[in-house]
Design a binder for these strands. Structure first.
Length: 558
RNA sequence: CGGGGUGUGGCGUAGCUUGGCUAGCGCACUUGAUUUGGGAUCAAGGGGUCGCAGGUUCAAAUCCUGUCACCCCGACCA
């Protein structure tokens, strides 16, 4: 490609609306352009990068034995009704109607579609197991799109679905995909961790996320300082020690105007972890009192799983609703004597003699004990933080932030049962298939790569990702010796089937160097003053090493 | 959804408080000259519904009302 002909515009100044590196650089270097919030165009260089990530993904998926298809993005409501997700998915689903008022959505994910395709075609155990996948644009009406390609409304995703006859098939497919994902992200040059994950809206009972480590990541990862336990914060568990202490007698104390945990703890001269935090949630008509230790936060993902509520359905109850439905006093809520659904965190359940609200204005209760004083469902509902104990080995957990670039799920028969995706087994009995699903955010991966690989001058692409691998720069376009040699070199590199740009613009060399760095082209070849002696400069973007070599040496070397 | 902020040529911005002449500057773009190893210099030039709608006024980028878009923060309390 000739730079003079390229559809490219680089910018010197940072875009006003960007504050993370990957987005700034993608815009400045002319890789992408924003249409509206959360929706982006890929310009020639951006598309080449996207295609490179796709290529790696496709090659590794094919290598694993999976087969590629391409489904429609437009999906009819009926299929989503079958799985029950038309209601459950909530506002994130892009819904639309055709001219006959028939309802559709733009696919945010494709479990329903793949299940539909497979149930039409696969009838026998003999045709299983199998994995099919696609690379396609997905649509999600995000609450708040942000960080450029990291959270977009429209984005490119690779999604794969496995179908098998039993759990063993599923486990095998899951492991194959796990290994495949590692190969994909290795080739993308990412530093990442595979962590245990919550299954969220997709459902199922086993999942890993692949997290590209980065401070701008929206997810928190907790991992053990000693063993190899690693989990998303939504999923992470911790080990706690059961405190042995004699149960004391329950006692009401006056706590005038002391509403928050901190106020009460300070007032009573105790630590917040000796108090119980009572949080009232509602989902539809259901009112749930959730109890965690005073120094803990409720983990919404865990709570959703336990209550069966969707993340958008589970809300904090307003004060007047609390008064109305629970006949208690906001600010002084406690489990003792309260009549409603209650869930207590297992850590608090094992804490003796804690303090709670008394359900009366300006009063709290001391020495409350689970079981003795009230009953509730026990569950793990706290958010684990850095310093908590590893659930496997008990050593302290560390925390890091990550960008979720991939996730794999064991779906089991969740979709196949609802949607009647059955096969006839060896014994002649019709059974639901065991499914898994496996996603990679292709466009998001690009942003993650940049977040991990840039410097003051611009992007530093890993070699497989770079849109072009070589930049040939004639330093002075008026010097015919330089121009001729550069043209010759360009031709020779093209003949070798290398991805090369010739910067044939009539610009000063500084401009060309700056652009090469900004674009992140891995290898730069400058044809300059020594062109007459057939010597050029060969410089590497990543480590800034450069050498002067003859054209012949260069051609032999690459 | 709640809170805060911002909308002025392709990009980045000044002007707005205190209304007033042709809306200024840098980058980019066009033409010419000089220049050519880390974002050149000079000269000439083109490009603007000041987000949109309404209002106040002799007069609105500027004041008022509404609206749209974009960005950031938040969604944890008993």
């Amino acid at each position: 490609m000739r730079m003079s002909k390229m559809f490219l515009q680089t910018e010197k100044e940072d875009p006003k609306d960007a504050d993370i590196v990957s987005y700034k650089l993608l815009i400045k270097a002319g890789y992408i352009r924003k249409l509206v919030s959360g929706v982006y165009h890929f310009l020639p260089l951006g598309l080449r990068v996207l295609r490179n990530v796709e290529k790696i993904t496709r090659e590794e998926m094919n290598r694993s034995g999976a087969e590629e298809i391409l489904c429609s993005a437009l999906q009819p409501k009926e299929l989503w009704d079958e799985s029950g997700r038309w209601e459950k998915y909530g506002a994130g689903l892009m819904r639309l109607k055709d001219r006959n008022e028939r309802e559709f959505c733009l696919g945010p994910t494709h479990e329903e579609i793949f299940t539909e395709i497979v149930r039409k075609q696969i009838k026998s155990y003999k045709q299983l197991p199998m994995i099919i996948y696609q690379i396609q644009t997905k649509y999600r009406d995000e609450k708040r799109p942000r960080f450029g390609l990291i959270r977009a409304k429209e984005f490119l995703m690779k999604d794969a679905y496995s179908f098998g006859v039993n759990e063993k098939d599923l486990d095998e497919a899951y492991h194959v995909m796990y290994d495949t994902y590692k190969r994909i992200f290795d080739r993308c040059g990412l530093k990442y961790k595979a962590v245990l994950a919550d299954t969220g809206a997709i459902g199922g009972d086993g999942s890993h996320q692949f997290m590209a480590l980065s401070d701008v990541g929206e997810s928190a990862i907790l991992y053990c300082s000693k063993c190899d336990y690693a989990a998303d914060q939504e999923k992470a568990e911790t080990k706690f020690e059961k405190k042995e202490e004699k149960l004391k007698e329950i006692k009401i104390v006056e706590t005038k105007d002391k509403k928050t945990i901190e106020e009460v703890a300070t007032f009573l001269g105790v630590e917040t972890k000796n108090c119980a935090k009572s949080v009232v949630y509602k989902t539809g008509e259901r009112i749930i009192l959730v109890l965690v230790r005073g120094d803990r936060h409720v983990n919404l993902a865990k709570l959703c799983n336990i209550t069966g509520a969707g993340e958008e359905e589970l809300l904090f109850a307003e004060d007047d609703e609390i008064k109305k439905y629970l006949s208690t006093e906001p600010g002084f809520i406690g489990p003792v004597g309260l009549k409603c659904e209650m869930i207590i965190d297992k850590e608090l359940a094992n804490t003796p003699n804690f303090i709670t609200g008394a359900n009366l204005r300006d009063q709290h209760v001391l020495n409350v004990n689970f079981k003795r004083d009230f009953e509730a469902t026990v569950a793990d509902i706290i958010e684990v933080v850095e310093g908590d104990r590893c659930p496997l080995c008990g050593m302290p957990l560390l925390m890091e932030r990550g960008i979720e670039v991939g996730q794999i799920f064991k779906l089991g028969t969740k979709y196949s049962e609802k949607m009647h995706c059955d096969f006839t087994d060896l014994d002649g009995v019709e059974k639901p298939m065991y499914m898994g699903c496996y996603g990679i955010g292709v466009s998001r991966t690009i942003a993650a790569i940049i977040e991990q690989s840039y410097d003051a001058d611009g992007i530093v692409w890993p070699k497989e990702i770079a849109p072009y691998k070589y930049m040939v720069i004639p330093a002075n376009m008026k010097d015919m010796v330089q121009v001729t040699l550069a043209e010759e070199l360009y031709k020779r590199l093209l003949e070798k089937n290398l991805e090369v740009i010739l910067d044939d613009r009539d610009e000063r060399p500084g401009v060309k160097f700056k652009d090469t760095d900004l674009l992140g082209i891995p290898h730069r070849i400058v044809v300059g003053r020594k062109a007459g002696e057939n010597i050029v400069e060969f410089k590497q973007r990543a480590n800034k090493e450069s050498s002067e070599i003859t054209v012949e040496e260069l051609l032999n070397q690459i």
